[in-house]
Nucleic acid binder design. Structure first.
Lengths: 158, 158
DNA sequence: ATGCTCTTTTAGAGTTATTCTAAACAACTT
DNA sequence: AAGTTGTTTAGAATAACTCTAAAAGAGCAT
């Protein structure tokens, strides 16, 4: 039993690592089956601020369960993104690997030249996101007939 | 002479297709050598609103000069992006191809589920971009020590 | 618990977007 | 024109996924 014996290292201010019970609930709420692999993967993603690539995430996961395969990382991330449990952050580098984030609360990313992604602190993120004028979005939806489903703000630096 | 004989189909409100002279000037201003291939590629990119992928752009280019190779498309796009003559728009789809845009004036993109990218009309784009609070960006730069070089806003829809 | 069904996992093969390589070619410099 | 450097090319190579088919596991109904 690799995946059972870890302590939750809290790297987020506003979230605590869910225990096994809570995780299973979280998954079924989102229409996902609960598997050993998904639990480790999700915990690993929650437990880092690094916005890892699928490959980096595999390494993390392997410190807890070395049997998990790369394909499962991709499958699980796809499932998480699909049901809203994680976000995919496409690379600004041509052909670069996507990065993933289990922090679902909407926040702004700061993307560095080398492809790494940092979180903009919550207070600043919110100021930026709140500043997006809602009436402009409505106007756009009306003009184009497209139903808007999200807004993403990215800052570039370094 | 394939590339010389085309009429500029104006697809932008605010830009006209440059003639050969202007193009050469534009390239050298940006530190690029002026080559036959780059001219066709840049004109093709300017002449469409479709934010094509490298592959789609090759097809466009081939209607004017079928000798241009795919590698040259990639090389040229890299050069254009590097010197600020074009923007790269990473795909929201995992593993999907990047899209490119020769319209450099900062504007907001509306990204559809299927990966296609539309421009948000200038007036709305500007309202959205102007609403980003400058003092928040300054604060962020100070807190993190990262020098900010750009802001990107993307809307998702459909 | 046991069987049944449907989903997930896995290793490895396959695909796609992009980059590399090395030789031919074309632009600016003198 | 000759030389130097940057660019283009086809094709090989790589990286980041995605697919396949078989084995394992989850969840439900006995």
């Amino acid at each position: 039993m690799y995946y059972d014996d870890w302590m939750s290292v809290d790297t987020r201010h506003h979230e605590h690592s869910p225990n096994a019970q809570e995780l299973r609930a979280l998954f079924t709420e989102h229409g996902l089956r609960s598997t050993r692999q998904r639990e480790v993967i999700y915990q690993s993603l929650l437990g880092t601020k690094e916005h890892p690539t699928a490959e980096e995430l595999l390494e993390l996961v392997h410190t807890h369960d070395p049997e998990v395969s790369q394909a499962t990382i991709y499958n699980s991330l796809e499932a998480f993104v699909g049901c809203g449990l994680a976000n995919r952050i496409p690379s600004p580098i041509s052909g670069g690997a996507c990065r993933y984030d289990a922090d679902i609360g909407s926040h702004v990313h700061l993307v560095l030249d080398d492809g790494r992604v940092m979180d903009v602190p919550m207070d600043l993120s919110q100021q930026i996101l709140n500043a997006v004028p809602a009436h402009v979005l409505e106007e756009l939806a009306q003009r184009t007939g497209v139903e808007l489903s999200g807004v993403k703000v990215e800052l570039f630096g370094k």
